[in-house]
Amino acid sequence: MSRRDYLLRKFLFSLLTIFVVLVINFMLFRVLPGDPVRSVIGRNVRISAEMQASLREQFGLDKPVFPDQFFATLQQWAGGNLGVSWSLRQPVAEVLMSKLGNTLLLIGLGQVLSIVFGVALGLFAGWKRKTSFDVGSLTFSLIAWATPTFWLGIILLAAGSTWLGLPTGGIVSPQNVGKPLYTVLPDLARHLVLPTLTMTILYLGEYMLIMRSSILEVLSEDYILTAKAKGMSHWQVLWRHGLKNAMLPIVTMIALNLGFTVSGAIYIETVFSYDGLGKLFHTALVRQDYPLLQGAFLLLAVSVIVANMLADILYTTLDPRVKAN
């Protein structure tokens, strides 16, 4: 099978997966207990029973789930339309896109930093096995990995705002809203310090631990011994033969994490009042806002699948054995 056929098959299979996810989600949200109209309005006493009936009709909820609601929704999706959120009354695609930017900024930064530091720590810890550096970074990573997000966030928030004068929440200061982000970079950066730091600490441990065990395994391989015997320096062995082979599990890890982190880091967002996708997913679920829920889960499914596809493709480059198969 040529590489093109392989990718094409992957792509078609992904499309099928997305469709199946959409259908399952459609059904899943509709078997949730409760009445979406009641959830959307909350306990707002302004809405009488008559008006709830009127909204139910407008949302198409007065019709049976199958076939009416199902085909109406399919038809809408087929037209590339995700519908209008019931609670926010804005097009779902627009709402998702506006939060996606915020989330990618935070998650992207946090992931890049935790990958860089995690991989570096793991690599050196593995290389310098059983030294105090190894024990120290291993202990730190285990603690970091086991720390509850919310707790770490709150502690950093209290410390950072009290002693460093860092902001207590938001993405930019109120006086800078409405301005394009690149014009207020210092302010933006000040707001990103604490959430990014929290995120980095939390993920760093995971990457470090995987990298360490992976490099330890690679370093015990015969070809490393061969490389050393050929007279290569420690650094050359580590860089050229160790790192590249030890990266495979890390790539899988990154792909999985990146896929799921689009769902937002809800705890971090909540602690730092950072308006990302995680909070939006939560709101959509609490208010049983079907169009928004469906759109949000579509985005989540697509990003997990795309991240996995990217990992597959990267594998063909990193590992010749995958290419051969």
Binding site: L157, G169, S273
Partner: peptide, 9 residues
């Protein structure tokens, strides 16, 4: 300005 948790507020 919106805060998502009362401790931060």
């Amino acid at each position: 300005q919106t805060f998502d948790n009362s401790d931060a507020l």
